[in-house]
Simulated assay, not measured.
Amino acid sequence: METEMSSERGQEDIVIEAIDIHKHYDTGQVVVKALQGVTLRTQRGEVVVIMGPSGCGKATLLNCLSGLDRVTQGTIRITNQDIRDLSIASSRSSAPATHIRRCSKRATKTTTMQGKAHE
Rank of each mutant, 00 (worst) to 15 (best):
Ile21Gly: 09
Thr98Gly: 02
Met5Gly: 02
Gly74Tyr: 15
Gln114Arg: 10
Arg41Ala: 14
Gln73Met: 07
Gly67Leu: 06
Ala89Cys: 10
Lys23Asn: 06
Ile50Glu: 09
Asp13Ser: 13
His99Cys: 08
Arg84Pro: 01
Val71Trp: 05
Ser6Lys: 07
Thr112Ser: 15
Ile76Tyr: 01
Val49Phe: 09
Ser7Asn: 01
Ala107Tyr: 01
Ile19Asn: 07
Ile50Leu: 15
Ile76Pro: 01
Ile16Gln: 13
Ile78Ser: 02
Glu12Leu: 08
Arg106Ala: 11
Glu46Asp: 08
Glu4Asn: 09
Cys103Ile: 14
Arg9Phe: 04
Tyr25Asn: 01
Gln36Glu: 15
Glu4Arg: 04
Gly74Arg: 13
Arg9Ser: 04
Ser66Glu: 06
Leu68Ile: 05
Arg101Trp: 05
Gln29Tyr: 14
Thr98Tyr: 06
Thr60Cys: 12
Ser66Asn: 04
Glu119Ile: 02
Glu2Thr: 06
Glu8Thr: 11
Ser6Gly: 04
Gly67Gln: 06
Leu61Lys: 08
Gly55Thr: 01
Met51Phe: 01
Ala117His: 13
Glu12Thr: 05
Gly55Tyr: 03
Ile14Arg: 03
Gly45Met: 02
Asp85Lys: 09
Ile50Phe: 11
Thr98Gln: 14
Ile76Arg: 04
Ile19Glu: 06
Val38Asp: 11
Gln43Tyr: 13
Glu2Trp: 01
Gln81Ala: 10
Val30Asn: 12
Leu61Ala: 03
Ile76Met: 12
Ile78Leu: 11
Val15Met: 11
Leu35Thr: 01
Thr108Ala: 10
Lys33Gly: 01
Glu2Tyr: 00
Val48His: 09
Arg101Lys: 13
Ser93Arg: 02
Ala18Ser: 07
Thr72Gly: 00
Pro53Thr: 00
Lys23Ala: 03
Thr42Ile: 15
Thr79Leu: 11
Gln11Cys: 04
Ile83Glu: 09
Arg84Leu: 14
Arg9Pro: 02
Lys33Met: 12
Thr3Gly: 05
Lys23Pro: 00
Arg92Asn: 07
Cys103Gln: 15
Ala18Arg: 10
Ile76Leu: 08
Leu86Arg: 04
Cys103Phe: 03
Gly37Trp: 14
Ser6Met: 08
Val32Arg: 02
Cys56Met: 09
Ile21Met: 10
Arg77His: 07
Val38Thr: 10
Thr39Ser: 15
Gly67Tyr: 00
Asp69His: 13
Val49Gln: 04
Ser104Trp: 00
Gly57Val: 07
Asp85Thr: 03
Met113Phe: 04
Val32Phe: 09
Cys64Met: 02
Thr108Ile: 10
Asn63Met: 07
Gln11Glu: 14
Gly55Arg: 10
